[in-house]
Simulated assay, not measured.
Amino acid sequence: MSLSMKPLADRVIIAPAAAEEKTKSGIIIPDTAKEKPQRGEVVAVGAGKVADSGNLIQPQVKVGDQVLYGKYAGTEITIEGTDYLIMKESDIFAVL
């Protein structure tokens, strides 16, 4: 998946995973009760953060990484009809 947008500094763009449609036991979850996903795929990465010393700190994530992030992290954006999240790299908790 390629975007025509490049995030600045230490920001990343994430394609969130789809919300769960049913529970493990097979109960279908209605749209009003679905939780926001906390997992997604990195689709674009900024150049990195500039430290106080002036050195560039490279990002730890790369395009294609599956990541876990906070439930309310980032800002929701829509590009060409597809929903994405844009957030700082520090809002990502783990790479799967």
Results as ranks from 00 to 15, higher is better:
53 S>T: 10
51 A>S: 13
13 I>N: 00
29 I>H: 08
19 A>Y: 05
35 E>Y: 10
58 Q>V: 14
2 S>W: 00
47 A>T: 06
44 A>F: 02
55 N>F: 09
84 Y>M: 01
39 R>W: 12
86 I>L: 03
40 G>V: 02
53 S>M: 03
64 G>D: 15
14 I>K: 06
22 K>S: 14
28 I>D: 08
83 D>F: 01
72 Y>L: 11
45 V>W: 09
19 A>W: 06
81 G>K: 01
13 I>K: 00
62 K>Q: 14
29 I>E: 07
86 I>W: 01
78 T>S: 04
41 E>T: 12
67 V>K: 11
28 I>N: 06
52 D>S: 02
29 I>G: 06
46 G>E: 12
33 A>T: 09
24 K>M: 15
25 S>P: 14
31 D>V: 09
17 A>W: 09
71 K>G: 07
81 G>R: 05
69 Y>L: 08
81 G>N: 04
27 I>K: 13
96 L>R: 15
58 Q>K: 15
35 E>W: 09
20 E>T: 11
76 E>W: 01
6 K>L: 11
80 E>H: 05
75 T>E: 03
46 G>N: 13
37 P>T: 09
2 S>F: 00
58 Q>L: 15
16 P>Q: 12
13 I>D: 00
62 K>N: 12
23 T>C: 10
3 L>N: 01
21 E>A: 04
67 V>M: 13
15 A>H: 07
43 V>T: 02
64 G>K: 14
70 G>T: 08
89 E>Q: 15
15 A>D: 07
17 A>K: 11
36 K>L: 15
28 I>P: 08
16 P>D: 13
33 A>P: 04
90 S>Q: 13
19 A>L: 07
14 I>Q: 09
27 I>G: 07
93 F>G: 06
67 V>W: 13
75 T>H: 03
80 E>V: 02
3 L>Q: 00
51 A>E: 10
95 V>H: 11
